[in-house]
Design a binder for these strands. Structure first.
Lengths: 151, 151
DNA sequence: AGTGTGAGTTCCCTCAGGGAACTTTGGAGG
DNA sequence: CCTCCAAAGTTCCCTGAGGGAACTCACACT
């Protein structure tokens, strides 16, 4: 990965990138989310080097984004699962999907669709304000220093 | 960056990571978004190697995420700005901020706050369904193959 | 005993990131 | 005119992370 450490910067983007900024991590989380959860399955599905996969998984376990479960003890077998912290990262993936669908899908259209349980319809995700519920994008806000800002 | 190419995968996450998956790119976009837009400013603010910064900027220009403007012709001086495609990536950054605030900010609290123009309040971003407007997260959907799915 | 499978490790090679010095273009100052 | 300065990169070298293939280890099946 990068040698410059992001984890100590006073920026939530940098700190998030410190956890999942290495390019394979989002794809690993995606696979675990959809049920591709074992080491060899991940390696084959992604085409990632086994070495790098082992490194990434160890890091994501340390970060409490994934957890490792034994699903068989007689022959010891494990699979990976998202923690609550990891499930919330999937929201980030949903927004990536939206951008990728819009700007990179081309003629073929989106590779996957989401069906929303609440309304049963095929839908995309949109950003809304936590306070008033109206849409809230980059051009709808002022950015102000918060309590954790650096000097 | 990674030698494995992500741009050809039938996955909008992978294709998005192909554009901004290198760890510095989101921070560059953040800086440009808040008005840190010139080469030397970016280099100093981020602490990135000048060499890598030049590479990233060139890539982001090629991807039509940034554009380069001449703000002075007499001494030729340039600055970078977000394209519409780039502005939509800032939505992704806003979701990263939300996750980073929640899970990595600790005692100090969030480094920045957003004030929503529409309601004037300090707010976070939330994910809602494009069809019914209700909240929509990773546990509220089924994932189905779409038209652009691979064989 | 021999084969198979899951889950990693180990080894080597190449290339990308970090850092510092150097270059280029065109003012500004004396 | 000559020198100095700033913006915006470029070049060079070094180290370390990613890729790939082979190897390991524990256990079950036949």
């Amino acid at each position: 990965m990068q040698r410059t450490r992001f984890g100590d910067m006073a920026c939530s983007i940098a700190r998030t990138m410190d956890v999942i900024g290495e390019p394979w991590s989002p794809l690993i989380l995606r696979d675990v989310y959809v049920g591709i959860a074992r080491f060899d399955q991940l390696q084959e599905d992604l085409g990632i080097s086994r070495k790098v996969l082992a490194e990434r998984l160890k890091w994501l376990l340390e970060q409490d984004v994934l957890e490792r479960r034994e699903y068989s003890a007689k022959p010891p077998r494990h699979e990976y699962a998202l923690t609550p912290k990891g499930v919330e990262l999937v929201e980030l993936l949903m927004v990536m999907v939206r951008w990728g669908d819009r700007w990179t899908a081309g003629e073929a259209g989106p590779p996957v669709l989401y069906r929303h349980h609440a309304c049963g319809r095929t839908a995309r995700v949109e950003l809304h304000c936590s306070e008033c519920g109206e849409p809230m994008g980059p051009t709808d806000i002022d950015v102000l220093p918060g309590p954790g800002a650096a000097a």
